[in-house]
């Protein structure tokens, strides 16, 4: 598997140790030529508008696991990356929300298919990021199932949450959910894949587009997941994934005037407070998922879809001339 994870151009001496572990570069070299084939190392870039740019800031950080092993060089996203991502999400918004719900369901299912196909890679990455093999397998399986779960909801949650309202006047009146627009998400930090999938899926199943800040400490799966998205019919800009620090980016996620809703999954009271304060600038819908265990059944529900939906009520007169009655 081509899962070596370090930009070769930025290998420091300190990193070489872990590269040995990860990349299995053969120690024995003759005349500087590796005896085995040298693996191509993966570049972990961010994902904006369906493309994989490097962060405009040029900054990187090194992701490590708990054993202190260096896993990868990862973009340290900036507010300008966020700004670009919001532009991409906004321009994708009309098309994505305008798609048939059935079609969105198919695309979510396609993401699950692609994830299934790259299961081993994700398990591998999770194991590197401190999961046991069994935990990793479980998490990847749950993530795939979660996508399937929401793929199925795409054309059903509206039916559960819509009403035809029996108004007292001669009008036909119905209320339906509609996506709120662009959602900025700070994904669960302790979960590399499942948390990410669990917060993205309900948002896009509902027709929103999003900008997601992946787990800072466990970013590997997020970037690989972006590749999955990119190869599974999800239009560019629907999901944009950044890597970086909450402390640097959270305030921009909260105060951007072209973001309609904000999801935050950590229990950090000061940041929650800041988000509500800054979110008030344009009255963002601020949603906190700091009590959800994504591994359980509580980690998925149509009510989570509804957290980033608006209810629209439409009225139209009903003509009733001549007192005609229906036939029974």
């Amino acid at each position: 598997m081509a899962n070596s994870t370090i930009k070769t151009s930025s290998i420091s001496s300190n990193q070489k140790k872990s590269i040995k572990a990860i990349g299995k570069i053969d120690k024995e070299q003759s005349n500087g030529v590796p005896s085995k084939r040298l693996e191509i190392l993966k570049t972990y870039k961010i994902y904006i508008g369906g493309a994989f740019p490097r962060t405009e800031s040029g900054r990187y950080y090194i992701a490590e696991n708990s054993k202190g092993e260096k896993l990868a060089n990862v973009c340290l996203g900036s507010r300008k990356d966020f700004r670009e991502a919001v532009v991409a999400a906004r321009s994708a918004s009309g098309g994505w929300s305008g798609r048939a719900a059935f079609n969105r369901g198919q695309i979510l299912y396609r993401i699950a298919e692609m994830l299934e196909g790259r299961k081993a890679q994700f398990i591998d990455e999770l194991v590197k990021q401190d999961s046991s093999k069994q935990e990793a397998e479980n998490e990847v399986g749950l993530s795939i199932d979660r996508l399937i779960y929401y793929a199925g909801w795409c054309d059903k949650f509206q039916q559960l949450n819509s009403t035809v309202n029996p108004v007292a006047s001669s009008h036909f009146n119905f209320s339906v959910p509609e996506p709120t627009g662009v959602v900025s998400i700070i994904a669960p930090q302790d979960s590399s894949l499942l948390g990410l999938v669990s917060v993205i899926a309900p948002v896009i199943a509902g027709g929103n587009t999003c900008v997601v800040l992946a787990s800072y400490s466990r970013p590997l799966c997020a970037v690989t997941f972006a590749e999955v998205l990119n190869s599974s019919d999800v239009p560019g800009g629907v999901v944009n994934i950044l890597t970086g620090k909450i402390s640097e980016l959270a305030s921009y996620f909260a105060d951007h005037m072209d973001v309609n809703a904000l999801i935050f999954c950590e229990h950090q009271p000061d940041i929650k407070k800041m988000m509500q304060e800054k979110g008030s600038l344009n009255l963002k819908r601020v949603v906190f998922y700091d009590k959800i265990n994504w591994l359980t059944g509580d980690g998925q529900s149509p009510y989570l879809i509804m957290d980033t939906q608006e209810i629209k009520t439409t009225w139209h007169p009903i003509e009733n001339i001549g007192g005609g009655k229906s036939g029974y």
């Binding site: 029996p166 209320s175 344009n282 608006e310 009520t313 009225w315 007169p317």
Partner: peptide, 28 residues
């Protein structure tokens, strides 16, 4: 009515209200 970003859309009528009918806004 599907493209207008508003919580209540009246077609061929306006300012109708009813207790059974949800009312409220998008955006600000």
């Amino acid at each position: 009515t599907t493209k207008l970003r508003a919580g209540v859309v009246w077609a061929n009528t306006f300012n109708q209200f009813d207790p059974t009918s949800p009312f409220g806004g998008y955006k600000e």
